[in-house]
Nucleic acid binder design. Structure first.
Lengths: 240, 240
DNA sequence: TAGATTGTTAATCGATTAACAATC
DNA sequence: TAGATTGTTAATCGATTAACAATC
């Protein structure tokens, strides 16, 4: 990192051949899910480098930071294109942009958040939508207590208004964070409306169908893995 | 499932040999991380069966519900012991208890939640602690606005009280949900106090050390995978 | 040019699935 | 006993790592 022998710019005229583009698009279709699941983590590390004004990074430098092999990083990135330069490494901003594009950041999806105001507040604090280019259009709760409260720039609506709201506002994604059977009832509505995606934080596993993608998030699962990890660590020690 | 040829009870006197126990404990130590990461999902499905008063389940029945192969289920469970019976399947309650034990549910860890009241509310709504046998002892925030507010059975304390509180209350686990650099500062304190685990919801990846286990939860990662999934699904369709 | 580092192939490793003997 | 289903081995599949020629 001491001497830069390149200003980090990419030559826009140096376009790949059509057969090369074809090969790459085949690779992208075939990108193993293990690789895809690692992309968000690359995205986070690259954004961090970007925030620190780092211009370039090599696979070996990044591998040290992330605790994975350099080989894996090069292999992973190459499923999607030739983003690096021999002898130089990767241009941080360019690579960040490529990964953003692959993941679909900035696709401008419209979302509704179906949760208590507190949970929406947590998501808003973490800037989880803003940073991924998702536009939240409304917040709805099942609990009449909360309806009418203001959270951020939203007035919490009642869940019964959801169907009309989605149709009027071109909603793509529903974030569901209700517990119990409310989650399942709402999920049925969302699927009936053929929204494109459900981001599910409820304690019931939701299934995707032909129209609606689902990502289930079970915080409790990772809590249990933490408990497992602690048990392993402290039990091993107690033994001779 | 139509006829039960067994009452589902396990003969307490039918204990395995010492060499068998040794073999199993070796297996458990060697349990591949891919298997361990699936345990919480088994736990959830079994609890669901339990709630529906299902007495027994076969690997093939469970495989249909979970969308995995029966072979994987049998292979996974066998890393930890012989929990089933030929010709019968698995006793739901027994298997649920075994998986709970393996994961360390009910180890009675004491936890503090370091977050806004809203996020604590979400965790409480989902009963994520109660269901895993973790005892929350206090909630602390960095924001003076929130100090003194009541959430559930807690009065929110200020983060500056954390060190004394942890020492006085035998705290094992810290849940960190602050955004920005507050998360890193608090994580340092937690590591200095040698708590056993950090359950991290902040937007900075925290690293484990010799004393403190870490589970990072990045909701944004799964949101990006949802965006990726939507892009794939709807782009494939647009093509011929 | 010399040094550095990628892209990519081949080798290794680990995880999943298939198959079936054991046995409830 | 006959039917069902596990536990477990062997075969397959996929993911990771090592190595190095290509090349910036």
């Amino acid at each position: 990192m001491s001497e830069l022998n390149n200003d980090g710019k990419i030559d826009i005229d140096d376009l790949p051949s059509l057969s090369e583009l074809k090969r790459r698009s085949d690779m992208v279709q075939n990108a193993p899910s293990a690789v895809v699941r690692r992309l968000p983590r690359y995205y986070r590390y690259l954004r961090n480098l970007l925030n620190r004004d780092v211009l370039r990074v090599s696979s070996s430098e990044l591998s040290k930071q992330m605790g994975v092999t350099a080989s894996q990083i090069r292999q992973d990135l190459n499923y999607f294109g030739d983003f690096g330069q021999q002898g130089y490494g990767y241009n941080v901003k360019y690579l960040y942009m490529q990964i953003s594009r692959i993941l679909g950041v900035g696709e401008k999806y419209n979302a509704v958040v179906l949760s208590s105001p507190g949970f929406y507040g947590f998501l808003a604090d973490n800037m989880v939508f803003e940073m991924r280019g998702i536009r939240v259009r409304g917040v709805f709760d099942t609990d009449r207590e909360n309806v009418g409260k203001t959270v951020g720039r939203f007035e919490v609506g009642h869940i019964s208004e959801l169907e009309v709201f989605c149709r009027d506002n071109n909603i793509d994604i529903a974030v569901i964070a209700f517990s119990g059977e409310n989650a399942e009832i709402v999920a049925e509505t969302v699927k009936k409306l053929k929204l494109r995606g459900i981001w599910n934080f409820s304690n019931t596993e939701l299934k995707a169908n032909d129209e609606t993608c689902v990502q289930n998030v079970f915080p409790g699962d990772s809590l249990m893995l933490l408990m497992y990890g602690i048990k392993e660590k402290y039990t091993d020690r107690a033994e001779p």
